[in-house]
Design a protein around this nucleic acid. Sequence first.
RNA 1: GGAGAGUUGGCCGAGUGGUCGAAGGCGCACGCCUGGAAAGUGUGUAUACGCCAAAAGCGUAUCGAGGGUUCGAAUCCCUCACUCUCCGCCA
Length: 452
Amino acid sequence: MVINLVQKYAFFCIQSLSLNFNSKYFMLQIKYIESNKELVTQSLKKRNWGDTQLKIVQKLIETNEQRKSAQLKMDQALSEHKKKAELIQGLYKSGEVTKANELRTEVQQAKETIKAMELDFKHRTQQLEELLLQIPNIAHQDVPTGKSEEDNQIIKTGQDTLPSPIPGAKPHWELAEAYQLFDLKTAAKITGSGFVLFTGKGAKLQRALISFFLDEASKAGYLECMPPYMVNEQSARATGQLPDKEGQMYHITEDNLFMIPTAEVPVTNIYRDLIVKAEDLPIKLTAHSPCFRREAGSYGADVKGLNRVHQFDKVEIVQIALPEKSYEILDKMVSYVEGLIIKLGLPYRIVRLCGGDLGFTAALTYDFEVYSVAQKKWLEVSSVSNFESYQSNRLKLRYKDEKGKNRLCHTLNGSALALARIYAAILENYQTESGIKIPEVLVPYCGFDRIT
RNA sequence: GGAGAGUUGGCCGAGUGGUCGAAGGCGCACGCCUGGAAAGUGUGUAUACGCCAAAAGCGUAUCGAGGGUUCGAAUCCCUCACUCUCCGCCA
């Protein structure tokens, strides 16, 4: 059954392998934008940018021109300045003190002008950087146009028919109450709404899932990491949480640290400011972490139980890859995540995000949804993305190519998997009239095969 | 939290106002030597931005980060971050 599904999946892999990879331009840097203005504009339109917003592209190019001419002026002035300083030194050595002093006064006066030039250059560079931070990643050509999640493309459904609920099927929050698996009320007392207190077999199931996911990732060649759960501003900026998702993170203002919204942030930042060897690629990392998300403003029907919480556990997989390999790797990662869901025996589908739903930093994203049988609802449990060189550019993560030139790596990541919702789906899909069965792969991790 | 000592290239390490992007060593790459290797020996070996159609070349910046003093800063002054040692507190 598992093999069969994997084979079916191969068809989809081959399809997306045919994506054409433009090897010459793969950075989202100012140089890229300058030479690909049309493509960038098209991509922004795909992300539903209006004409007013699109003006930023032109502004970017103009600002860069200004920056360049400012640098040229500054460099020339500095060069002259340096030469004069050397001259003064020579004059002192040869005993021509009067001449030296004269020149000193002259140079002293020129300092003001140079300072102004430096300031001008700095301002323009900053201005450019601020503008660049506002440009999202170029959407891959396969990204469908669309405004919201309704326009996402379902590219695969794991099963022909959806399972039907047993008579009297309960949503997971009712099951949790019945079997004392987790307690939202007490968590709300301790912390606030949107937090969870797991207890007994409920807590053990949670731990089992984490261990299972980490072991699977190790088997697939990912290096296990345990990163810090708070990051500094620079790290948050490098992976693109700042400035785009400012309000999504918990911010510890006193120390200016952010609670991580995903392990992607600390794990990817391991490689910030590094130049890696091409032969070391791909680098494969995995980590479990709690994920903290404020989810400000998202209230409504879909927040019940574990559907949307402020703290949930997740195992993340991250890869750093050669640009020409990244889409092949994206397919492998998608296939890996699919394998996990199949092992857990949950009904699922794979969705390709449309331009309106695509994250700021991603070029192409596949979401995994599992079917929650009692809620009769699809729950997003994984998101696998290729960021191409977008994060690398911010991370300054590069590798040396055959010619010894430094080029930006590509980064990819995916949830494998997000616990809270997978947990909910397991409870609902595995409920029987006499208790909840434990999926076979988890039994060795749990130490029990039923919750009664 | 208090006191002190540090932070220099891939690594080690010299350098307390000038010719220092930085001695020396290790490593790495290429060559010579060798039957082959080691040893020996020679050369090369940072990053970013800019000028140039591009390469070559050239310019500028970078010695933890940011400011300042100076004609000139790795070197002097200030602020911050990190590392180490001691004290305090603590799982």
